[in-house]
């Protein structure tokens, strides 16, 4: 049952994506058209609280469940992959109205189309794995 806590956290995530409407295709369109504050409010609040939380966790040296200090991974500095990969991701985010989390929340919600998006997302991930070494990445 050690995995139950992850399922439970996932359930909370699914509910917040649905009830906050962050999983909504329409809300994502509204965001990219700058026609409402809604999504900016959600992301902004999450990041604001997140920054304070991470600062405090580091400052107080919080331990995790296993008694280890909470770890943070620093991202590498291969700028190209962030801007190119990010832009490709953004094209898909606006078209499907969903980033990876909400794709799966959407399946549970009953949007059958999200199954097709999932097949695409797995295909895209696989394609990346295939061509990865040919892409501009590993140099700054």
């Amino acid at each position: 049952m050690k995995f139950f806590k992850y399922i439970f956290t996932g359930v909370v995530f699914g509910i917040v994506m649905a009830k906050s409407e962050a999983m909504s295709w329409y809300r994502i369109q509204e965001m990219f058209r700058f026609q409402s504050f809604h999504m900016y409010g959600i992301i902004g609040t999450a990041v604001f609280c997140g920054v304070i939380a991470v600062f405090l966790i580091k400052k107080v040296e919080v331990k995790d469940l296993n008694g280890q200090p909470v770890r943070f991974q620093n991202k590498d500095k291969n700028w190209r992959k962030y801007i190119i990969g990010g832009t490709i991701f953004g094209l898909g985010w606006a078209l499907t109205g969903a980033c990876p989390g909400p794709i799966f929340v959407g399946i549970g919600y009953g949007y059958t189309g999200m199954v097709v998006v999932t097949i695409g997302a797995l295909t895209g991930t696989y394609l990346y794995g295939v061509v990865k070494d040919k892409l501009p990445h590993w140099f700054a």
């Binding site: 992959k81 490709i88 991701f89 990876p100 097709v116 895209g124 991930t125 696989y126």
Partner: peptide, 22 residues
């Protein structure tokens, strides 16, 4: 939907993360 999904999958791995990770 397929095309959009491919962009999401390819782009998130290329960028090393999606909305939650980044």
């Amino acid at each position: 939907l397929l095309f959009g999904g491919i962009l999401v999958g390819f782009g998130s791995r290329y960028a090393g993360g999606c909305t939650s990770g980044h």
